[in-house]
Design a protein around this nucleic acid. Structure first.
Length: 304
DNA sequence: AAAAACAACAACCGCAACCTC
DNA sequence: CGAGGTTGCGGTTGTTGTTTT
């Protein structure tokens, strides 16, 4: 099968998106919902390829995206999941609904990898919890997993992370301008329906209804998790409901603690222990601290 | 004050999986 | 069942902002 010409077409614009383009894309998706990306540039007149539209929406315009510094909790989750899953950023992102896979990938490459690489030089200080555990290989899926009790042990290590109180960065690029433009745009449009329940985010398509973690995911054989457990994270709604961009939170908006609680409440069947742990900020902060990402005193076995 | 170096992140590219007919 | 089309994902690059010299 031949690859369809996409971004190499003549007349296709590349590079940074303008606020005007963002408005066009957001308003179109508001009306039609995400998905069917092929038709987006055709119907909107945007001189962008479908892939670029999807990426822009997924990584930047999608409601509920949290921007700014990663918290210690998030760092803990990312480091732990990366050790479990390898560089499967989409799978990792499914555990952090407010972050995009691209964001996580960037953060890993620019921050965490460096920290962990520096820390790995002092492997003698590796914490016994991680030293004892053999984490799954992303390539083979083989592993012996840490148990719930291991996770609980992690949570008992009480030492506050230096990152815990990091303020969010003041994300101010073209976002301010875009936000103003969109604000004006929204005011001129009809009242919006109430915000929908938290979706499962799977690569940017809210209308996707499929398991968050695929069959090949080593977590499926993780001894404290079951397939049913994994479905806990697949919190989605069955029908699309275009909603106000701003009511979603607009740029920089997020579901925050309330939505996290909402997710916890909606998720049935009950979360597995590791999933609960992943949503437990206090525990994860402690794990992040346990990993000591800042001062290089200990490390996590990584699988690059 | 200017240039160079570095850091952060948005966006692109290409492959592979998935879907539809 | 297979071919063609579409979408998702991960690696990588390009651009912009910040810091250092």
């Amino acid at each position: 099968m031949g690859r369809p010409p996409c971004c190499d077409k003549e007349g296709i614009k590349k590079g940074p998106w303008t606020p005007e383009e963002d408005i066009i894309l957001v308003s179109y998706i508001q009306e039609h919902g995400p998905g069917n990306w092929r038709s987006v540039p055709i119907n909107t007149g945007l001189m962008r390829c479908s892939k670029s539209c999807r990426l822009r929406w997924t990584n930047y315009l999608r409601p509920g995206i949290k921007r700014g510094n990663f918290t210690a909790h998030e760092e803990g989750i990312i480091v732990h999941l990366q050790s479990l899953l390898g560089n499967r950023w989409a799978a990792i992102a499914s555990y952090l609904p407010q972050r995009t896979d691209n964001d996580i990938k960037n953060y890993w490459n620019t921050h965490l990898k460096k920290k962990l690489a520096a820390n790995s030089n002092s492997s003698s200080n590796r914490h016994p919890i991680f030293a004892d555990a053999t984490f799954p290989s992303a390539a083979t899926g083989s592993h012996t997993a840490s148990s719930n009790s291991d996770v609980n042990q992690m949570a008992t290590i009480a030492r506050r992370s230096p990152f815990a109180d990091c303020p969010s960065s003041s994300y101010a690029s073209s976002m301010d301008n875009i936000s103003k433009l969109l604000d004006g745009f929204m005011k001129t449009n009809s009242p919006s329906p109430p915000p929908p329940p938290l979706h499962h985010y799977d690569g940017g398509c809210y209308d996707d209804v499929k398991p968050t973690v695929d069959v090949g995911n080593p977590l499926l054989s993780f001894d404290c998790m079951s397939g049913a457990d994994l479905d806990c994270f697949d919190v989605h709604q069955q029908q699309q409901q275009p909603a106000s961009f701003m009511e979603y939170g607009g740029y920089g908006g997020g579901y925050g603690d309330e939505s996290k609680q909402q997710l916890m409440n909606q998720a049935t069947p009950p979360l597995s222990s590791i999933e609960k742990w992943l949503f437990d900020e206090a525990a994860a902060e402690q794990v992040a601290d346990l990993m000591d990402l800042s001062d290089g005193c200990c490390s996590v076995p990584m699988m690059f």
